[in-house]
């Protein structure tokens, strides 16, 4: 749910990175953080366990520039991917403007990807959102790993609707900004329509 402030001339939007455990959601944010100018980003917050697994969420505020004199700010969040953190995942989806689904390309994670997409759809529905109507982008991460399955298979399983999708190697930055730009663009188009 965006927040438009006419007084400070700002548009604030919320983007959530979703996906199975260890698929690279936090890595996406870390790469964006590392490669963004200091004046365009705020502090990155990670609420993680001692073993650096996301416990509640990661948060990164980002300024993308101006549209017609309005500063556009995007708040990027990740959810904890592990199955048993479902209650926390639901909370983070509140007020979401756009979703990035980060899929793990490895063969052994095929089921985890499918389960996570279903979980996303269900949790969004509980908040009154329809995944098919929300700005939505898919990223196939870990394309560099030997056990990565062909892109066509991932697409068939995860992207029947043909939303914008990208291949990625998040630690190296491949596909990271392409994904972010695609979802941010969709969010702004939705905002223009009047949501």
């Amino acid at each position: 749910m965006s927040f438009i402030n006419y007084s400070s001339r700002e548009i604030n939007c919320k983007i959530v990175y979703y996906g199975p455990g260890l698929c690279g959601k936090t890595t996406n944010l870390q790469y964006v953080y590392a490669k963004t100018n200091p004046e365009s980003k705020g502090k990155m917050i990670s609420l993680a366990t001692e073993t650096e697994r996301t416990l509640f969420f990661d948060f990164l505020p980002l300024a993308l520039g101006e549209i017609r004199g309005f500063k556009t700010r995007f708040h990027l969040y990740t959810v904890p991917g592990q199955v048993f953190y479902d209650a926390s995942r639901k909370l983070i989806l509140k007020g979401v403007d756009g979703v990035v689904f980060v899929a793990d390309s490895q063969e052994e994670r095929v089921d985890a990807n499918l389960e996570s997409v279903e979980n996303l759809r269900g949790n969004l529905a509980e908040q009154g959102y329809d995944l098919d109507k929300l700005p939505y982008v898919i990223q196939y991460n870990k394309r560099d790993l030997p056990s990565a399955i062909p892109l066509a298979e991932l697409r068939r399983d995860l992207n029947p609707r043909g939303v914008p999708d990208f291949e990625a190697v998040a630690p190296a930055g491949k596909g990271v900004f392409e994904t972010l730009k695609a979802v941010a663009k969709q969010v702004l188009i939705e905002l223009k329509k009047g949501g």
């Binding site: 438009i4 006419y6 548009i11 993308l64 520039g65 101006e66 549209i67 017609r68 556009t72 730009k181 941010a184 663009k185 702004l188 188009i189 905002l191 223009k192 329509k193 009047g194 949501g195």
Partner: peptide, 18 residues
């Protein structure tokens, strides 16, 4: 009626941002 205050933004404006 939930009319967007941003209805006047053009696709070009959005493209320019990126």
């Amino acid at each position: 009626g939930g009319q967007s205050p941003f209805a006047e933004i053009t696709d070009e404006d959005i493209d320019n941002l990126f």
